[in-house]
């Protein structure tokens, strides 16, 4: 299982990827007059990526919560203040 740090990084990367995929110039790659299953390419692409991102987001969120719970349990016996000192530096 990925560490909380790793998941934090993924939580940052996912919106960046989403932004990249949903803006030109990448978006304009699919800007043509063809159709996929009777649906214009661009329309199809936009909604496909949209759904794809939502699914990824949901998966990541589930793992983030789980991982944070594990982390919280692990750090519970240590007094939270002394732990903070270390993290902030």
């Amino acid at each position: 299982m990925a560490s909380l740090d790793q998941l934090n990084e993924r939580a940052l990367v996912l919106p960046l990827i989403g932004f990249l995929l949903l803006t030109p110039p990448i978006l304009l790659i699919f800007n043509d007059e063809n159709e996929i299953w009777g649906i214009p390419t661009l329309y199809f692409y936009a909604f496909f990526i949209w759904i794809f991102l939502i699914i990824l987001g949901k998966l990541l969120t589930n793992r983030l919560i789980k991982s944070e719970l594990v982390y919280a349990k692990k750090t519970l016996p240590i007094s939270s203040t002394s732990e903070d000192e270390g993290k902030q530096s």
Binding site: A11, L12, P15, G18, L56, G57, L64
Partner: peptide, 18 residues
Amino acid sequence: LEFLTIYFGPTIVFLGWW
């Protein structure tokens, strides 16, 4: 399809809710 931008933005912000 330009109208979609108004909903892509919030989607991305909520993807990065963490």
